[in-house]
Structure formats: structure tokens, C-alpha cells
Nucleic acid binder design. Sequence first.
DNA 1: CCTTTGCTTGCACTCCAGGCAACTTTGCAC
DNA 2: GTGCAAAGTTGCCTGGAGTGCAAGCAAAGG
Lengths: 195, 195
Amino acid sequence: MEENLGLRERKKMATRMALHEAAVRLAAERGADNVTIDAIAEAAGVSRRTFTNYFANKEEVFYYRDAHRLRRLCESIRQQPAADPWTVLTGAAADLLGEAFAEANTSWLTQLRTLHRDPNHLAHQIAAYTAIERDLAVEIAARVPGPDAELRARVLVATFLAALRTSVQFWLDNPGTSLPETFRRVSGMVSLTPA
Amino acid sequence: MEENLGLRERKKMATRMALHEAAVRLAAERGADNVTIDAIAEAAGVSRRTFTNYFANKEEVFYYRDAHRLRRLCESIRQQPAADPWTVLTGAAADLLGEAFAEANTSWLTQLRTLHRDPNHLAHQIAAYTAIERDLAVEIAARVPGPDAELRARVLVATFLAALRTSVQFWLDNPGTSLPETFRRVSGMVSLTPA
DNA sequence: CCTTTGCTTGCACTCCAGGCAACTTTGCAC
DNA sequence: GTGCAAAGTTGCCTGGAGTGCAAGCAAAGG
């Protein structure tokens, strides 16, 4: 997808990914709270100072993948033609979840499950989702008709992200389930009344 | 409501509240990021060390009121007789929001608005909501029939909290609106398909 | 090449989280 | 009341996190 980038850009992406992967691996090994930034930086082969150039804190590095996917989702929404917002959102989500589900191998899954087991981290996962809530709401508001557009768009986006997050959470909690199928079930349970 | 408590308990509640109010006031004055724990503790008349006996971090002290209300909501749900979960949730929420709306005077509102203006803090507000998501889901799961009970309860609770949070956010963003009325509008936009 | 631009790193400093031990206040039984 | 035990407060101290700054270095592009 994003090829044709200079060496500099490619190195930055590699460093980001190395930090993220080192962080998740270490967290799965010894628990997220027992991982210091120094340890992550060392495992990724950079200095502690460089870590903080890439991520503002530990939570960010753990949820980098989630945040990245959500930003891509936001991008893909932006490029969709105007259509029923809920359909656009769930459609884009289905694509992304399919991709995530496909690339989730066993060891990766185990690491993710270990990370999500920590109840403290639920809040941080949500923070990642929230970071794009405003952006997404702005994008959606433009497609919602009626005088209620702003409020309706916010409700739409908040509900959508809640559904997405619940799906991922349930999928991680229940080994053997399919992520896209779980999302399909979840989005079937909630409906937004049309304007 | 909770009277008949010993001096010790009443003092603790007072200290908690003093810390919370000092924190919100200082944050409104100079921005949440420019408030140190030392400043909050001093303003509340206790030592910095005592602050950390009461709250684990700055976000917790800012959202103490929200978290407290949500815990009370969870309690009130627990005591409700078995009934339609969505009705129980929105009913309990309406009560709490009415109370919050009634006790919100102008200066308090201004402080809250300043706090919520910081986009960084949206994530922390959500964290507060999330902290009780699991507890609430357990409570609700017992009232949801059908084989999907667990998943359905989670979706129900996540959607409900999203609606609640969106209502508060919208109300703060739009001076002059009524909080209970906003929540009524929002919950009218969402519907959960029955089992 | 050689300049420019931008990334990395170490250093220094402030703030935060929490264990520990001394001290003070409250609760309660006598 | 008096005294003791339980609980709360505080200061001290250690380790970790976040960030501005300046020096060094590597890539980009003439």
C-alpha cells in the first residue's frame, strides 16, 4: 500500500513497529505493569529518549496497532461516497476486522489476550478508540440529514465504536470465535432510528 | 442519604470532596496540565502524600464526581426488580442526570466546560465510564434471556454508557440545553433489538 | 561531494507513584 | 475520663515517566 517511501520514512515505520512489538511481547511475558520504557527501548534497539519521540507513554505503544487501524478506518470513511452512515461505518469496520482477524496468529493472540486480561487496560483500550471519536463524528455529521445532525452523528459514532470495541473484547475473551462474525452479531443487536 | 457515619468517615468524605473541588477549580483557572498534585493538596489543606492515599492519579480526582455517580447508578440497578434491562438502565440514568442537572450551578458548569474542552481529557472521562462497564454488564447479564445473554448484555451496557456519555458531552458543549432532555433525545435515537 | 534537513541520543530537571516508619487522631471498652 | 488499638496523615526516599536542549549523525537532494 504505502510503498515508494524514502529510507528515512521506512526506518521510522520500522522503529515504531519494533517498539510496539517489543512492548506487547514484554507485556505478555512479565505483565504490562512490570515493563519499563527502558526495557522496551532496549528490546527494540533504541534509546529511552527515542521511545518518547515516538510514543507519549506506555499505553500508546501497546495500542498502536488498534489506533493505527482506527485511523485507517477514519480515512476510508472519508473517501466513501455519501451513503447511509451506519452502513458505511459497519462496512468499513467489517473490512478492517477481517484483515485483523486474518493476520492474527496464535502467539499474537496470546499476547493480546494477556494484555487485555488486565482490567486496568480496558480503560486504555477505550482511550485509543476515543481518540478518533471526534474526527469520525465530524466526518459523519456531514452525511447525516436533518436538524439533529450534530447530535445524531455523535450518537451514531459513539454507538458504532462501542459495538466495535465490544466485538473485539468478546472475541478475545472467547477463543474459537470469529471476529468478523462476532461483529456481525453485535451490529445486528443495535439499530439507530432513522432521522 | 448516608448519614449516621462516624467522624472518621465524614472527615474522609470531606477530604475527598475538598481534593476534588480544589482540583477542578485549579484546572479551570490554569488548565488541567498546569495543575500539580502538590498544588491540589495544598489547596485542599493536606499533604501531597495524603492526596495519593485518596486518588491514584490526577485524572481520578478530576472525574471523581462522575465515577461516584456511576457507582451509585450501578448500585441502584442492582436493587431494581428484574425488568426490561434497557428500561431499567435509562430509568436509573434519568434519575441521576436529573440530580446532576439540578445541582449544576453556573460556576461549576464553567469549570466542567473548561475541563472538558481539553481534548486529551475526553479519553480520561471515558476511562471513568469504562471502569464500571464490567460490573454493570454482570448485573445486566442476569436479566437478559436467551443464549446470547453474555454478548447481548455487554452490547447493551456499552451502548447505554455511550449514550450517557454522549448526552453529557453534548450538554456541556451546548449551553442552554437541558441534560435530562438531551438524554431523552439520545436514548430515543438508539434501539436494541429484543432477543 | 557538500549542504541541508531531520532523527537520535545523552543530559538535566521536574513531576508522579508508592513503600516505609514515625506520629496523630478517632473509636471503643472499661 | 483513661488507655489502648485501629486507622489516617505525613515526611522521606527510591525508581520511573515526560520533556527541553544541544550535540552528533545519517539521509535527501542538489
